[in-house]
Nucleic acid binder design. Structure first.
Lengths: 216, 216
DNA sequence: GTCTATAAGCTGATAGAC
DNA sequence: GTCTATCAGCTTATAGAC
């Protein structure tokens, strides 16, 4: 095996097919989970014959892992920001808005993880205890420092992160419920903006960080 | 069909078998979703031969709908409380603690709904637009009245409910992730208590309802 | 009502032509 | 690398004995 990268640069046509398959598989696994996913539907979504999928990824299990790795990659890229020296309110607001933006732009990624977690993380179990744990530790350390410095109220930092994750991912994972209950047809920019504004002001207030313009 | 109830009172033995099947099916559908669920695994979980499942519920689809209806029933029973004349802080605290208690006691119910929503609510679509919509309307009306009366800060009432749902259900749906990141082996009473205390004080503060003992 | 045996069709995966 | 044809095993569901 010469090249284990996601994209095989040596053959653009093959790389394009692999990307198309990966994207189709992501949607399929996100909606139905690993066991519920069908290779035929992946092929249909990618508009390719079924054997092509097996040619590029051999088995359903390998395809699933490729999708997971590919998604985690882009997932992590976006959230390194929460470690700056700027004001807590600004950092938290950026974090919340970015998470919500991802939930709107790529709900399939969120649903893919939700499915994997609901099933008990059979594939991402090790990841939770290593990279994700380390990521969380680094963020909570920053939060703890802010609390010690009196820059924000003292709250359980891990559970604060959990709440932000849950509250933002909810708009991807439960999108159909949210839209039905809000009488909206789609999760467009307006709904996203209203949601972001609510979440930012509500969560900042919970952290003792009075949103600007609010009188106390 | 004489008796369409969940429990067939006329035959206790049969009723017991149906309950055992329903409980097993709930666990299976909660973990794998409708398409990922296997009738053989349902039978194994119920410790019954597979044909018995089909004798009582005919098809996989009917079994799934029976599980959904059964779960919604017990789901709704617990949340009528949010319409009293007592203090907002008390009502919200009761609501949050009750939701979290359910997430701990019956995580399968939460995961079942999560799976159905992630898949786009193919079976609960109508329910979202009728009963659930009506339930939410009634609660947000109470919240709006409290806001008008100055009893709490003015925030988007629908999204406040969404946040409480998301934040509490997270501990059922993402339990494996939460436990891994908190370095805990199980979601026991202590973890639940710590979580409830965090959520209550954080969310009440977000609503402008200072938790008792907090200095501002 | 319960269970063993089995049918009919679907699903992941491959053989082999191009 | 891509596609048609196809296999082996699994999955839902039922037939029929008890």
């Amino acid at each position: 095996m010469v090249n284990t990268n996601t994209k095989d640069i040596s053959n653009p046509i093959s790389a394009e097919a692999k990307d198309k398959i990966l994207s189709a598989a992501k949607a399929e696994f996100a909606q139905f989970g690993f066991e519920g996913a069908r290779m035929q539907r992946v092929a249909d979504r990618a508009a390719l014959p079924k054997p092509n999928i097996h040619y590029h990824y051999q088995t359903k299990q390998r395809l699933y892992q490729a999708v997971l790795e590919n998604t985690i990659e882009s997932w992590n890229l976006a959230f390194e920001e929460l470690d700056s020296e700027v004001e807590p309110a600004v950092v938290l607001e950026t974090f919340i808005r970015e998470k919500l933006r991802q939930a709107q732009k790529d709900p399939a990624a969120s649903r893919l993880f939700a499915n994997e977690m609901i099933q008990g993380a059979p594939n991402l179990g090790p990841y939770l205890h290593t990279e994700m744990h380390a990521w969380l530790q680094a963020r909570t350390e920053i939060l703890r420092r802010w609390m010690e410095d009196g820059k924000m109220l003292t709250v359980d930092p891990e559970r604060l992160i959990f709440l932000i994750w849950a509250a933002t991912q909810h708009y991807a994972d439960f999108q159909v419920q949210v839209l039905a209950l809000l009488n909206r047809a789609q999760f467009n920019d307006q709904v996203a903006e209203e949601t972001a504004n609510f979440l930012v002001s509500f969560i900042l207030r919970g952290c003792g960080l009075t949103p600007e313009g609010e009188t106390r």
